[in-house]
């Protein structure tokens, strides 16, 4: 739990309800499951709630539980199991940096430093403006080091490209997701090295 646990100092919102558009989306998701198995929709619904609110308050979890007619504790169990459900509010910029072995070997420490230099707060801290968070393997080891921001990955970072990226985030400029060195998906860096000729 630790950093994932709810923050007792953050007040719970008084109420929570899906917006109309989200409700339509939720209804669609619930309809995917056979009658009596609506509880299976708990994860996508929590995701919708998190996107709407920015984080998952207990009020929101209770709302989802109510919507699916399951005891609230069953929703808390799911939400606390997965670290990508945020149980406390994040800053405006939520930067998730992978520091697992592949990213670390490829220079995630430099990216960490770049973030600290741009935002001026130590890594692992959070304020209204920014949350700098270390996450476990993002599953994009070939293009390490990797940063996840909003729904996109920013790959093949170095100190300089990372600094530019974070500055752009801070300034609200448009960003280019994916590899920052022009690599196509997860092809070898600098183009193919084998099977260059067709048979």
């Amino acid at each position: 739990m630790s950093s994932h646990a709810p923050d007792p100092n953050v007040p719970e919102p008084a109420s929570f309800a899906f917006t109309e558009a989200n409700m339509v989306e939720a209804t669609k998701i619930i309809a995917k499951y056979p009658a009596g198995r609506q509880r299976s929709a708990v994860m996508p619904l929590l995701d919708i709630a998190q996107r709407q609110e920015g984080w998952l308050s207990r009020t929101a979890m209770d709302y989802v539980a109510d919507l699916l007619s399951v005891p609230p504790i069953r929703v808390y169990e799911v939400a606390t199991f997965y670290t990508m459900y945020r149980l406390r509010p994040t800053g405006k910029h939520h930067i998730e940096l992978c520091t697992n072995i592949a990213c670390w070997l490829r220079g995630s420490d430099d990216v960490k430093r770049a973030a600290e230099d741009v935002f001026g707060v130590p890594f692992g801290s959070s304020n209204d403006d920014v949350t700098l968070e270390e996450v476990e393997c993002a599953g994009a080891c070939v293009n390490a080091p990797v940063v996840a921001y909003k729904d996109d990955y920013y790959e093949d970072l170095t100190y300089d490209t990372a600094k530019a990226l974070f500055q752009a985030m801070k300034d609200g400029k448009p960003l280019t997701p994916g590899s920052q060195i022009g690599r196509q998906t997860s092809c070898p860096e600098g183009g193919p090295t084998t099977l260059k000729e067709s048979a």
């Binding site: 739990m1 630790s2 994932h4 005891p71 609230p72 069953r74 808390y76 169990e77 606390t80 199991f81």
Partner: peptide, 25 residues
């Protein structure tokens, strides 16, 4: 609590070593 007593208020939150049995609230 869930099966016999019929009061589904207990659960396991968190995971792995950090799993905790709690009523959460």
């Amino acid at each position: 609590a869930t099966e016999v007593a019929g009061v589904p208020e207990l659960g396991a939150v968190g995971r792995g070593e950090h799993m905790e049995v709690t009523t959460y609230v």
